[in-house]
Design a protein around this nucleic acid. Structure first.
Length: 851
RNA sequence: GCCCUCGUGGUGGAAUUGGUAGACACAAAGGACUUAAAAUCCUUGCCGCUUGCGGAGUGCCGGUUCGAGUCCGGCCGAGGGCACCA
């Protein structure tokens, strides 16, 4: 029998057209089915799709397909995060208009995504750079402005001198711009902010409700928000009216306080602003290193003032006041009390300036007489000592009591502070959403009236000058007030592109609604996103902003959304070996061939140095172009490969052997499908063999269902291999029967359809003469049919495996022990030994404990 | 420095609740078919002796348990996040 090969280049196209023509993946609200919103992080249209996209969208597609077969009404949309810097860079370097460059990339990438046969509802496609998207965003901005959640403030900002723009704290990595890699400098500018801190507590505590998020991501967000519970405490300054308010999380150590430290830009620094020594000191503080790590290791420096403060609980005790480089004005109140015995930084400072070190917490196993603090502060729990009315308490009770005393004596109050800062959203760029704000001649802020939205970007734009092109535009920013006719000026800052991606999941619910960003009815039906999938690099920024934005724009409306993403999955990266030629230049993998275990460059025959496998990146050229691979092997092989071997949350190694292995497997399934159609039924199966077949498929159904539900796609893949190996063997041994095989193969095709939809559809059509596999019901399984009628029971002696016995399940315990003792090997090992104990785990193992 | 995660064959990785370690795949070696190659199929894969069996074995050391890759304590190593946060 000759079997034609499976030809993906024909089959893929056939099914993709069929799905599109029949609008199979278009979603609409339905009362009959439960909804399921499956979303992958939308791509930035940088040019071509890369393997990371392939992996991300394949993972999502498995879920979307699976849920559809499970009877859910699935929303699985796609869009484009299409504002951003690379478009402007392209404009400057290639003299292309950012819009043309972007739209062109979107077209290319959309075509490429379609080649993979994803079950996407393209009718809901959105693009953030279209004014029919960003006009709604401008409306949200105005809403937030009216709610007092947007404000403008003169502030020190992170300035990227290469990109000529402001960066959010989150976008500064190791003191460098996240995109340009340039050393970030501090600059004072008037900037727009979202008041994300207003939601700090809610963003923190609500993390506990996200049961389907990775622990890791929740911890990262918790650390970023940095909630700390403590209190404010005021110190009277001797001979002055003013007081110094400090924030502390360790009020229980107040009796160990030996100094006060202020940030150099603390309000009290005004008294010293003309003091040349202080000016010198302040300059020194600013000079110290730029990277965060350098700052952390910098020596603690102090400038002693003439102030003295009175200790609030110890009569006649005064504390010296310093300005210091390790206290930040942005956190707490810009002032601390130093307790050197129980804080490492305070201790270093105290040792340097020869200040008192009084221990007030005694560790459990220490003696009060011998306990001394030298170079290491003690930060653990213990018994409070040297502390008057707090003596004898532990740290926690001490805190409660001292805060009570502080509040009672009107010295301060309990307070919670956060590390989180407000979100700076101003960007001095062209290719972003314009901020709908006007200024009059005095600089007063005038929000653009809603009926004048959208504020569209001008099409004619010039990138020749550095800085903000919108600002340089000859007339765009000049407007006449529609009411008064006065000359007004537009805000030329545009919004951080993270704003665009903070609500796009809501837009998908109402993508064709011209009147509002989303309709409450739609959001009520589709939200929250049931499963969100994307890279872990967005664990903080994008996810935190989205959580904030959802809260902010729905606050005080009929439908408040707190958590937009019910389930989150963060996938690993796609890696590849790196290659360098003799000149140390990176070489593309496609230009490298292997000969006798050595790698050489295809054209020059240069010997290639093989570097470690790293995440695919253009700069290291260790990329494999998805389109090339799809053309060669077809969509299903590529999908299959990125699901195989590695668990989705971990990095995956791209390899040529791997993809050709996947291709072979696709062909194997095809061959089996063809063989099943041609079974001649010369030898029918006996009853035992039929039972065996039922067991195989029931087991597979159970395993695939379990492994999809738990994101163990690599294990599901292994189970498919196991099953196919079985079936293949039976077919080759002529142990087959058409009716039985077509019955179990039918279920098999439904199971594998989410992974390889083209192959499954084609096999289905040939075997069962219809195109409707996608409307099938996910098969159920019967545990009774899976149960083995002969099982292996492990026989252990002192916990070591010594033999196996074949038994029917659920046998009497004594019978099994008897059988064990008859085994030659066991007999031998039990000779001259006393049996102390016999353990039986039902249908699994026997352990005989002897001495 | 603090927080988190992970260490299993030559490689990627399996092992629901502690219960047969190495499923499945890749690579390698040997073999079958073939004039040959490709494709396909089979076998092997730590140490010791004769099929069989015995021994070691999931980064290292110790503990709990009849039994530990899995639980606990302490090290070592890799990766990630945060970084003067009071």
């Amino acid at each position: 029998m000759h079997i034609e090969k499976f030809n993906p280049s024909v089959v893929d196209k056939k099914w993709q057209e069929h799905w599109e023509n029949k609008k199979i993946f278009q979603a609409s609200k339905s009362k009959d089915k439960p909804k399921y919103y499956c979303l992958e992080m939308f791509p930035y249209p940088s040019g071509k799709i890369h393997m990371g996209h392939v992996r991300n969208y394949t993972l999502g597609d498995v879920i979307a397909n699976y849920k559809r077969l499970k009877g859910f009404n699935v929303l699985h949309p796609m869009g484009w995060d299409s504002f951003g810097m690379p478009a402007e860079n392209a404009a400057m370097q290639k003299k292309l208009h950012p819009k043309d460059w972007t739209l062109n990339n979107i077209k290319t990438m959309k075509d490429q995504l379609k080649l993979l046969g994803f079950s996407i509802d393209w009718s809901r496609e959105i693009s953030t750079c279209n004014d029919d998207y960003y006009k709604h965003q401008q409306k949200f901005f105005l809403d937030l402005f009216n709610k007092g959640l947007v404000y403008k403030k003169e502030s020190l900002v992170n300035w990227d001198p290469v990109d000529n723009t402001v960066l959010a704290n989150e976008q500064v990595i190791d003191g460098k711009g996240w995109r340009s890699g340039a050393q970030v400098i501090q600059k004072k500018l008037s900037q727009w902010f979202f008041k994300i801190t207003a939601f700090a507590d809610s963003l923190d505590t609500s993390l506990n409700t996200l049961h389907e998020w990775p622990e890791k991501v929740k911890i990262m967000q918790k650390n970023w928000i940095g909630k700390s519970i403590g209190c404010e405490l005021s110190f009277e300054i001797k001979n002055q009216k003013e007081k110094i308010t400090v924030f502390t999380t360790r009020p229980d150590t107040i009796f160990g306080a030996s100094f006060i430290a202020l940030a150099v830009d603390h309000p009290l620094s005004k008294d010293y602003e003309k003091n040349p020594k202080f000016i010198e000191f302040k300059d020194n503080c600013y000079k110290t290193g730029n990277t965060d790590e350098a700052i952390a290791k910098t020596e603690k420096l102090g400038f002693k003032t003439d102030y003295e403060v009175v200790h609030p609980f110890i009569k006649n005790k005064t504390l010296p006041v310093f300005f210091s480089n390790f206290v930040l004005m942005e956190y707490g109140s810009g002032a601390i009390f130093g307790c050197p015995a129980h804080d490492q930084r305070d201790l270093e400072f105290a040792n340097k300036y020869k200040l008192e070190v009084t221990p007030v917490i005694l560790p459990k196993d220490e003696n009060i007489k011998n306990f001394k603090i030298k170079d290491e502060a003690y930060t653990g729990d213990g018994k409070i000592i040297n502390s008057d009315f707090l003596d004898g308490l532990n740290v926690e009770d001490g805190k409660t009591k001292i805060i009570y005393e502080i509040e009672n004596n009107k010295l301060g109050k309990a307070k919670t502070t956060f590390r989180l800062r407000d979100w700076g959203i101003s960007r001095q760029r062209y290719w972003g959403c314009p901020i709908p704000i006007l200024y009059d001649e005095k600089g007063n802020i005038i929000p653009v009236p809603e009926n004048e939205l959208p504020i569209k970007l001008p099409e004619d734009i010039n990138f020749d000058k550095p800085g903000n092109p919108l600002d340089h535009h000859p007339d765009w920013k000049k407007v006449k007030c529609t009411k008064t006719g006065k000359e007004l000026v537009r805000e030329t800052d545009t919004l951080d592109t993270f704003v665009d991606s903070s609500w796009y999941f809501l837009r998908f619910c109402s993508s064709d609604n011209d009147q509002e960003g989303f309709a409450i009815d739609d959001a009520k039906y589709w939200m929250p996103v049931d499963q969100y999938i994307g890279g872990v690099e967005h664990a903080i920024l994008h996810l935190l902003y989205s959580r904030f934005f959802s809260r902010a724009i729905t606050q005080d409306t009929k439908f408040e959304i707190k958590e937009p993403f019910k389930g989150l999955f963060t996938q690993g990266m796609v890696c590849h070996k790196t290659f360098k030629n003799q000149n140390g230049e990176w070489v593309f993998p496609e230009d490298v061939i292997e000969e006798n275990g050595k790698f050489i460059e295809k054209n020059t025959k240069d010997i290639i140095k093989v570097g470690p496998s790293e995440s695919m990146s253009k700069s290291k050229k260790n990329v494999v172009d998805p389109q090339t691979v799809i053309n060669l092997y077809g969509a299903d092989s590529v999908r299959w490969f990125v699901l195989s071997d590695s668990p989705p949350e971990r990095d995956i190694q791209w390899s040529d052997e791997g993809i050709s292995g996947s291709y072979k497997f696709i062909q194997k399934i095809w061959t089996i499908s063809e063989m099943i159609q041609n079974i001649n039924d010369k030898n029918k199966l006996n009853e035992e063999e039929i039972k065996q077949c039922e067991k195989l498929i029931n087991k597979l159904i159970k395993e695939i269902t379990f492994n999809i539900e738990n994101f163990h796609f690599n294990v599901a893949v292994a189970k498919f291999y196991e099953f196919i190996n079985h079936i293949s063997k039976m077919l080759h041994e002529d142990k087959s029967q058409k009716s039985i095989f077509q019955k179990i193969f039918k279920d098999f095709l439904i199971l594998i359809y989410p992974f390889t939809p083209h192959l499954a559809s084609e096999c289905w059509e040939k075997n069962y003469k219809n195109k409707d596999i996608h409307t099938s019901k996910w098969p159920g399984f019967d545990d009774k049919l899976i149960k083995e009628d002969k099982i292996n029971i492990v026989v252990q002696i002192n916990g070591k495996k010594r033999a196996l016995i074949d038994m029917e399940p659920d046998q009497d315990q004594e019978l099994i022990f008897d059988k064990c003792l008859q085994i030659e090997n066991v007999k031998k090992l039990l000779l001259d030994k006393n049996i102390l104990k016999k353990i039986y785990v039902k249908n699994k193992l026997v352990n005989i404990v002897v001495k």
